[in-house]
Design a protein around this nucleic acid. Sequence first.
DNA 1: CGAAAGGCTCTTTTT
DNA 2: GAGCCTTTCG
Length: 740
Amino acid sequence: MDILAELNHAQREAVEAIDGPVLILAGPGSGKTRVITHRIAYLIRVCGVSPYHVMAVTFTNKAAREMVERLGQLVNYAVKDLTIGTFHALCSRILRREGEAIGIDARFVIYDAADQISLLKHSLQELNLDPKQYAPVALSSAISSAKNNLLSPDDYRQRGRSYFDEIAARVYEHYQQRLRESGALDFDDLLMMTVLLFRQNPEVLSRYQLLYRHLLVDEFQDTNLVQYALIKQIGDKYRNICVVGDPDQSIYSWRFADLRNILSFENDYPDTKIIFLEQNYRSTKVILETASQVISVSQSRYHRGKLKQLWTNNEAGELVTVVETYTEQEEAQFVVSEIERLVSHGQCSLGDCAVMYRTNAQSRAIEETFIRYGMPYRLVAGTRFYERREVKDIIAYLRLIQNRRDSVSLLRVINVPPRGIGEQSQTRLSVWAKSLGMSSYEALRLLAKETPFSPHITKPLAAFYDMLEKLIERSQELSLVDLFDFVIGRIDYKGYIFNVPDGEERWDNILELRSVAQEYRGLPPSEGLTAFLEGVALVSDIDNMEEGASAATLITLHKAKGLEFPVVFIVGMEDGLLPHFRSIDDPTQMEEERRLFYVGVTRAKKKIYLARAFRRNLMGRSMITVPSRFLNDIPRDKIAPMLSGWQEEKSAVEASLSSWSKPSIYSTDVRDSYSRNRISPIPSITLCNLKVGDRVRHSQFGEGVVVSCQSVKDDMEATIAFDGQGVKKLLLSFARLEKV
DNA sequence: CGAAAGGCTCTTTTT
DNA sequence: GAGCCTTTCG
């Protein structure tokens, strides 16, 4: 198979330019992933480069996995010798191996955002600072920004401009000390420490420079300063660095991503070859032109005097559908019934459809409606699996086994399940430990010999210590799953969790976690534990998204980056949501909101819907909304006249279009001003002869018994207890129910 | 000590 | 409307 075949001119150029620095500016759907994979295949198969010498950095684990998969088809077995992963995963791997040089124990644990906040709160307490005055999240953001700019606490203090900065520097210093004592690194540390490691140990750096002679960086527009520093360190010797990105899709400035990295790259490597990928293979002309119009309003998009101009040979396609509904429930209903219409007309499958929104909170109304109508969906995140309390509890035990010094985990589980170690005991323990200048865990160990407290305090503490030591001892010989079971059994987590609300569901999550642990069964005890903890620390929701599921996808605009769907609904097209109100008075942030919208529109291949609700519940309060200003930038001739059945009068659409500059918030009569695009009830199609006690079958939920039936508006709602699936409420006109 | 209840504050986006 | 924190009571 010819690697260069089926590539267009620009793509081919990008694949063949293997010597020296290359900057690829790739518009959405321009075959970026194809270029990266083919480039790697070209390096290996045509240029004879050893796969060991190639490192590719992606934004998510999912992207890495996909790349591995595609490369597997191009280079076969050689794929296993390639280094492909996220910045965080790659850094973690390097630090496990080399961290000792800068005093990092190979058994370090990784703290996520929640662990970070928890540790910060303890820091505040020890520094006698009021968390109300100095919000932990604000401090965490300040510290994160410092780390992402490679600033030590001292550097940070010197640059500080305000009293808050002074405090933040103090907290940063203390927090960092606590991390070190705990043998823990936070997400930002993974990157920063690797850069510091290389800085302070040229001989280590040199080894990695020799190893990774060809670097590829995906989503370069979303890299931050540390990440760039790292690339530059490793790539500086051979200078075979290929970065791929699209400034128009830069949506992570709040994570300190810095578009200036693109300029720095060109400055640092003046011989950079710049390649534009401008042909779009993904979307229809209508979608692409809509997107181009939306982004064209954005400032400073020229690159060295050239403006990236996307074009496509694809068909014109269907016009954009813009819909206003009365409430967010109706908005969701519109989405569901429209998907139902498309699917039943054979225009697309359920899995082809995606619903995208600005904030996670918006998913609820949508989800409820999907459930109500019995339409299968998959939600990408919400509360992340690994952020669930019960999951974190068990992970904390396992982390403690891996690394006794992990103070956040210790504090998390010291009284979970309750074992008589209340707040009083905990405070006493930590005060005592501090007075001895040791960690809480060391103090626990000492407790057997010295007993500074009364027995009713000492006893449970000592028992807890003994139990942990027992767990650690067993961890040497048990496989991961056996260890998992041993821990659960030893603390009787099942008994505990079944006595808290939603106990059964929580227990299911534990079993789910157990099945993740099972994936590591091939590894020896301690290795399995480390790999498992590493895995759970660095996965994201998007990584677990199943491909080709027969369900609609519900996803935030941010997470949708890099994905594509034939049919896309963007909901919540309102000022305050998109653009988000926190961005509205800052022009720079507004640009980013616009790019976020652009990312959403360019996910669509065939058809895009933009929906908004006239009234929306925000923070528990019902608000009248203002149409998103971004709607004004959509070319009028690309907007479809309303769908029949969803439209009361065509002129209302015109009215709504022209009224976008005049926010309807000033209307005196809410109901009256809401006249456009009212949704009609979903037509009743199927059976209404259903009785309580009937057995029915549903395509998704299997068989069940009708528990109750009631009429809702023009429809019937049945409550059905499905065998092993729980009780669901379904609308009969919608759910495909069969009588058994 | 711990369970339960009431009060508070936010809600952007995530490796 | 939810999660987190504090207070209160047994």
